[in-house]
């Protein structure tokens, strides 16, 4: 008996996989149904639905990049401390001394790529008219995922705490100052006052809420760190789950009717 067969016949292997190797038709069906990771997929699909030139595989690549970001991100969290004292130096150390500091590179380039692939995925979904009934709502979920992907990238941009980071976030968040009614320099903000007392000031407006301060500072770093590492990823994971579930429930990848 070859080693491979020996392993595949062992009790441990069989307890994990619960079915013989997927070499015949029956077991190729069974593997899709009994494997947790594979059961996201249907058992069989139409050829065109998985043709690369049709889907460009962009949704799948986006999802894969999300996984890459999760894994490299968790590894980075072991090294990075989100405080004014440590943040910059920890990133510097990742570059200069930390073994596998390349995780930062992979994380950053993966993030840029994810922004691009999510746009392309949307582009392809639009161009194939796949948002049309019955998939309207999955498109809406997709738009939410698009926003959250951009916000993930945006909140992460601050964490290295270098000049590039804080000024990009400053520029990007300055607009919140001008939110109608809710920003202290926004149209209508002056109307929100009670007995001559302004409700919306630079210390209580939309931008303050976002930054946790009047300018990008320690409070912002903490806020963005938590948004970036915990809050947004959780929401994205949930929405991706719904997104995939809907792809299946809406009849699989779109087809000519």
């Amino acid at each position: 008996m070859s080693i491979g067969d020996y392993i595949r016949e062992s009790q441990v292997w069989k307890s994990i996989f619960r079915h013989p190797a997927p070499v015949d038709r029956r077991n190729r069906v069974v593997v899709m149904l009994t494997n947790f990771f594979l059961h996201l997929h249907p058992v069989s699909v139409k050829q065109q639905g998985i043709a690369l030139s049709y889907t460009w595989c962009m949704g799948g690549i986006t999802f894969f990049l999300f996984l890459v970001e999760t894994i490299t991100g968790v590894l980075l969290m072991f090294y990075y401390r989100p405080t004014l004292q440590f943040a910059f130096n920890d990133i510097l150390a990742l570059r200069d001394v930390t073994t596998l500091g390349i995780m930062r590179e992979i994380h950053r380039w993966g993030a840029h790529s994810m922004v691009i692939t999510v746009w392309l995925h949307m582009y392809r979904v639009f161009l194939t008219g796949s948002y049309k009934p019955p998939r309207e709502f999955n498109w809406v979920i997709g738009v939410l995922l698009l926003v959250l992907t951009l916000l993930l990238s945006f909140t992460g941009y601050l964490l290295p705490w270098d000049q590039l980071a804080i000024w990009a976030i400053t520029v990007g968040s300055n607009m919140a100052r001008a939110t109608p009614f809710l920003g202290y320099e926004g149209p209508g903000a002056l109307l929100l006052n009670v007995g001559g007392f302004d409700l919306i000031t630079s210390g209580s407006d939309a931008r303050f809420l976002l930054l946790g301060g009047r300018f990008v500072g320690e409070g912002t770093l903490n806020r963005f760190y938590i948004l970036h590492c915990v809050a947004i990823p959780l929401v994205v994971a949930l929405l991706i789950a719904i997104h995939f579930w809907r792809v299946r429930k809406d009849g699989g990848i779109s087809q000519p009717l």
């Binding site: 038709r25 190729r28 594979l38 069989s44 139409k46 050829q47």
Partner: peptide, 9 residues
């Protein structure tokens, strides 16, 4: 546009 099995295609 035939149906094919997800494993392996």
């Amino acid at each position: 546009n035939e149906k094919v099995l997800v494993w392996p295609d």
